[in-house]
Simulated assay, not measured.
Amino acid sequence: MRHPIRLPALVAGLALAVTACTNASAGAGTSAPQAAPASATGGSPATKGAVDAAAAALLPAAIKSKGVLAVASDASYRPFEYFDTDNRTMIGFDIDLTDALGAKLGLKVRHVNAGFDSILPGLAAKKYDIGASAFSVTPERSKTVDFVPYLNGGSGLAAKTGNPLGLKMDPMSLCGHTIAAQKGAIQGLDQLPTISKICTDAGKPAVKIELFPSQDGANLAVVSGRVDAVMADTVSLGMQAKASNGQFELVPGPDYEPAPTGIAVPKGSALKAALEAAMKTALTDGTVESLMKKWNLPASTSLKPRS
Rank of each mutant, 00 (worst) to 15 (best):
S307E: 12
A270Q: 07
M231N: 04
G29C: 07
A132E: 05
Y77E: 01
P254R: 08
P205I: 05
Y128I: 09
K66C: 02
P149S: 09
A218P: 04
P164C: 04
A273W: 03
S269T: 03
M1W: 09
A264H: 00
A134M: 14
A26E: 14
R88C: 00
A103P: 00
A124V: 04
Q191E: 14
D129P: 10
A40V: 11
G42N: 03
R6E: 05
G154A: 08
G203W: 06
I95M: 05
F147V: 12
A75D: 04
S31V: 13
K204P: 13
L211W: 10
F248Y: 15
T301R: 14
A15S: 07
K267W: 03
I5K: 12
T138A: 06
A134K: 12
K143W: 11
G42L: 01
S31Q: 12
A26N: 12
S302C: 03
A229K: 07
L97P: 04
P298W: 12
G154Y: 05
S73I: 12
G154H: 07
K160L: 15
G42C: 02
A40C: 06
K242Y: 02
A62K: 14
A134Q: 15
V223P: 03
A38Y: 02
F147T: 11
V148P: 10
G268H: 09
S214Q: 14
H3K: 12
L157H: 10
A299I: 13
R110E: 08
P79E: 01
P213Q: 13
G49K: 01
M172C: 04
C21G: 12
D96Y: 00
V51H: 10
D86R: 04
R2I: 11
I91F: 00
Y77A: 10
H111W: 04
G106P: 01
F80D: 07
A180E: 11
G246V: 10
A278F: 04
L297I: 15
Q187M: 11
L7C: 05
A61N: 06
K104V: 01
G253V: 05
G92D: 06
A53N: 07
V68N: 03
S155N: 13
D285P: 09
K183N: 12
P8Q: 08
